[in-house]
Amino acid sequence: MGELGGEELELLQDHAGGQLNALLDVAETDDPHLVVMWLGLRGVSAVPYWWGTPKWPFVVDEFFRRLDKPDHPHWLAGTHPGPPPESAGDRETFRDLLLFSPDALPTEVVQFCIHDGGMGFIHDVG
């Protein structure tokens, strides 16, 4: 965490502590079930396109479709990132790792997907 957070680690820890204390207060004064329900609803609404959710395969497939189309509107906000880093391996392995164990990808590949490829901005439109 220290390496990732750098100078902002203390702010992150303070924020996380404040959020946890607020949830504990609600659980102790009102109803623990209310906290669990709120966390579940918040998670569903905030991260429907993250790894492990039902929409994740769509995100991965769409990411590769957009990589194959340098003229896709997705790249209008920036530029097409070019090919993935060599450490991503072949396309099939890269796709499988993204689908089933993105935590096994090298850091430079994850950065390519998130920062260069804008993977977090891929959502279904229908």
Rank of each mutant, 00 (worst) to 15 (best):
G17Y: 01
R91N: 03
L97G: 02
S87Q: 09
E86S: 13
L98H: 00
T79E: 11
L105G: 02
V110E: 05
G17P: 00
Q111V: 09
D96H: 11
W50G: 13
D71A: 10
E92Q: 15
L98G: 00
L41T: 10
W50D: 15
A27F: 07
G40N: 05
G78I: 04
A22K: 06
K55C: 14
S101T: 12
D14F: 00
G43L: 13
L24D: 04
H74T: 11
Y49C: 15
P83K: 07
G17N: 01
V35S: 04
P57N: 12
F121E: 11
R66K: 12
L105E: 01
W75T: 00
H74S: 11
D61G: 04
F94W: 03
Q111H: 12
M1V: 14
W75M: 01
P83A: 12
H123C: 15
C113I: 03
G126V: 10
L39D: 06
P32F: 06
V125E: 14
Q13L: 10
I114G: 12
D71V: 04
D124V: 03
G117Q: 05
M1F: 13
Q111C: 09
G17Q: 03
G17E: 01
G52C: 09
H80Q: 07
F64L: 14
P32S: 08
G82N: 04
F121H: 09
M1P: 13
G118I: 03
L99V: 04
G2A: 08
E86H: 10
S101K: 14
G89T: 00
P32K: 08
D124G: 02
V125H: 13
P84K: 02
E92L: 13
G40K: 03
V47P: 03
P57R: 08
P83M: 04
H72G: 09
L20E: 08
Y49W: 15
F121V: 04
H123Q: 15
G126K: 10
D68P: 02
S87A: 14
F121M: 12
P57T: 08
E86M: 08
L23K: 14
V35C: 06
L20P: 01
L11N: 14
V26G: 07
P73G: 03
G40M: 05
H72P: 06
P102V: 05
H33T: 14
P73Y: 08
G18Y: 04
G6T: 00
P54I: 08
T79C: 06
G43F: 09
S87E: 11
D14E: 10
V109M: 07
E3D: 15
R66Q: 10
